Amino acid sequence: MLRRALAGLLLIGVAVLPLQVGAATAEPPATGSIGFDVHYGERGFKVGEALHQWHIGETRYELRLNLEASGLAGLFGLQYEQRSTGAIDRHGLRPERFSVEQRGRKPESAHFDWIAGRVSIRRDGTERRSGEIRPGDQDLLSLWHQARRVARSGKSATVAVATSKSLKQATLEVLGEEVLELPIGRVAAVRMRAYAADGGLDIGIWLSREHGLLPVRIRIEDEKGAVLDQRAARIEFGPAGEAARANKNSNKN
């Protein structure tokens, strides 16, 4: 049961304040990292840690998420790397490839062909399904940063979200502003939600006002109600963020 719930989640103390999303917020640094504490279930048991690195330039971007679980969660395979790479245009992030590598499983990926307007979802290089995409559509990881653009507009958006297994039509909406109690401290955040009508995608995204609307909490709930909640424990900007990735990679060798 645990393995099935965790696999489903891979695929896909708060005070409420008045909505003030339109207030000006500076852009975050182009490069950095966020370390998350990872919690599982409604009771929020900590099961591991995740490291998210980003590099967002003027024309290109690269995003990574390395999640490592401990205890039973680690034994059940909750260890993976997600990567999203692509371009930047007037619609924001434009993914070209989204990939997932998980211990004990064949690699999975989504390949975006913007000229043809199609995304190809593959397992071990073999296409399993495909779907239509339009400007502004995202993958599961790039959505974390594209949400910043939608938050600034203050208006909901309809986007297709590609995972490593499916393409979901989702609504990305601004719910308001909240004050979060996180491992990094008390954070004023804009709360977002991306959800599909069929229940196959439900992601809460909280963007920190203090940190240029970077994602500081990600809560994923699957169709059966299983919850994976990532809460920011540290944020590093610039070369320090790159160093965090290098150190994490060296620890694997």
Rank of each mutant, 00 (worst) to 15 (best):
199 G>T: 03
220 I>Y: 05
208 S>H: 04
202 D>V: 04
172 L>R: 09
120 S>R: 12
51 L>Y: 00
205 I>Q: 06
160 A>C: 14
133 I>C: 09
70 S>G: 13
101 E>V: 14
17 L>T: 09
176 G>Q: 05
240 A>T: 03
182 L>A: 10
60 R>E: 13
50 A>E: 11
114 W>P: 09
196 A>G: 13
165 K>N: 12
134 R>I: 09
15 A>P: 00
24 A>F: 12
79 Q>W: 01
181 E>I: 10
121 I>D: 04
151 A>S: 13
172 L>K: 09
251 N>R: 14
51 L>M: 12
49 E>V: 11
214 L>D: 01
235 I>T: 04
57 G>F: 02
7 A>C: 04
175 L>G: 05
34 I>K: 00
16 V>W: 05
65 L>V: 08
4 R>T: 13
208 S>G: 14
188 A>C: 04
90 R>V: 07
46 K>E: 03
196 A>N: 08
63 L>H: 06
106 K>C: 04
197 A>H: 06
246 A>K: 15
100 V>R: 08
184 I>M: 15
44 G>A: 12
107 P>N: 08
32 G>Q: 00
12 I>A: 12
54 W>T: 02
134 R>K: 12
121 I>K: 02
217 R>W: 09
72 L>V: 15
240 A>N: 03
173 E>N: 08
57 G>E: 07
11 L>S: 12
226 A>I: 05
123 R>F: 04
47 V>S: 02
112 F>W: 08
3 R>I: 13
114 W>S: 07
156 S>H: 08
71 G>T: 09
153 S>Y: 06
89 D>I: 06
90 R>D: 13
202 D>N: 15
227 V>K: 10
126 T>K: 13
107 P>A: 07
79 Q>C: 14
102 Q>T: 11
5 A>K: 08
197 A>G: 05
17 L>Y: 10
46 K>C: 03
199 G>Y: 01
26 A>F: 12
176 G>P: 01
192 M>L: 10
94 R>P: 03
191 R>P: 01
72 L>R: 10
232 A>T: 11
233 A>K: 10
153 S>C: 07
146 Q>A: 13
214 L>W: 01
159 V>F: 12
40 Y>P: 08
55 H>C: 06
251 N>P: 00
4 R>D: 14
108 E>S: 14
83 R>H: 11
204 G>W: 09
249 N>W: 07
211 H>W: 10
122 R>D: 11
180 L>A: 06
76 F>T: 14
116 A>K: 15
168 K>C: 13
130 S>V: 01
246 A>W: 05
134 R>W: 08
66 N>P: 00
183 P>H: 08
41 G>M: 06
120 S>L: 12
1 M>I: 07
152 R>D: 07
128 R>Y: 03
22 G>I: 06
48 G>Y: 01
229 D>K: 12
195 Y>P: 02
94 R>S: 14
118 R>E: 14
115 I>P: 09
226 A>T: 03
136 G>R: 10
172 L>G: 06
43 R>N: 09
94 R>I: 07
54 W>S: 01
190 V>F: 12
93 L>P: 11
201 L>A: 05
180 L>N: 02
74 G>K: 06
180 L>M: 07
233 A>F: 01
203 I>S: 11
212 G>Y: 06
185 G>R: 12
63 L>V: 04
120 S>G: 05
180 L>G: 02
134 R>V: 15
206 W>P: 01
